[in-house]
Amino acid sequence: MIGATFRRITPQLIILGIVLLLNFLVFPGFFSIEFQNGRLFGNLIDVLNRGAPVALLSIGMTLVIATKGIDLSVGAVMAIAGAVAASVVTGGGGWFTALIAALAAGLLCGLWNGVLVAFLRVQPIVATLVLMVAGRGVAQLITEGKIMTFLNEGLIFLGAGTILGLPTPIIIWLAMGTLVTFVVRRTALGMLIEAIGINETASRLAGINSRVLLLAVYLISGVCAATAGVIVAADIKGADANNAGLWMELDAILAVVIGGNSLLGGRFSIVASLLGALIIQSVNSVILLSGMPPEFNLVIKALIIIVILVIQSPTVKHALYLLRASAGSAVPEAHAVGPRNSPAKETRS
């Protein structure tokens, strides 16, 4: 099983490697990691740390997309969760209450999306668009349009603290990713989610309670977004309802796509999506370290992303496969294809 997973994520690993190498080329000190002030300090740590919000979003987004849905509201949910957490601690509550309140807000948002999609049968892109637009307004109402700052050490720890030298956000997204992957892959849930994405009617006829599962994936997405929102707010010690999570839903979708998951639903890999999130953050890192004028930021990002997506496109993949196959016996994978096909032919004949 590990072998299969490894084969699945090989393209993402290669791309990540190339982008990290690009980082090394523009800034030779990229891979150096030091231990100072009780925390690991280095660009690689930054990539893992700064990639946390998109990584968290991509976990929930992968499941939603696997059901052939999409969740555009995650950025707004981040803003709401940050605002809720900030208002709890500024109102005198503890960090744990704030975290629970923020996660509850995320669940509520997920419930809203899930009910619209699973029970009222609104198309996911429309259903979640409602919250994407309205959610930021809700967050602004909570913060009264200001940046709501707080000094609660416990809450700040979630965004800017360290555990064993590693920034807390890294631990959080790794834990969340492991937990969700474990739950969906060690049970039949993952397969059932894939079944809904491939053909919902058929899966329902086969006895899958598709409504509850659909609701569940939007709930998970809401919780992931709320966690990301708390991290982002804790990081700057303030809830910025105008900017927290702004356009981040697009980065999350991009992470899922770079992870090689189809927007048409079906088979998914959370690990690949997480790698996608790291690839996006590494691209951002190249831009920041290159010292190019900011006018080029989006152009560079677009170019790198286009190259990544073109390499992953089915046509190019097929062409690469043909190229390797025609190169003859020198390439071991061409061998692998041959024997695997031949027994089938034998049984047929």
Partner: peptide
């Protein structure tokens, strides 16, 4: 981008670079 979060992220990269 005139925002706190991005100001922090970009400053981090300045400090490293």
């Amino acid at each position: 981008d005139f925002t706190r979060a991005q100001g922090k992220v970009v400053m981090e990269s300045f400090l490293k670079a």
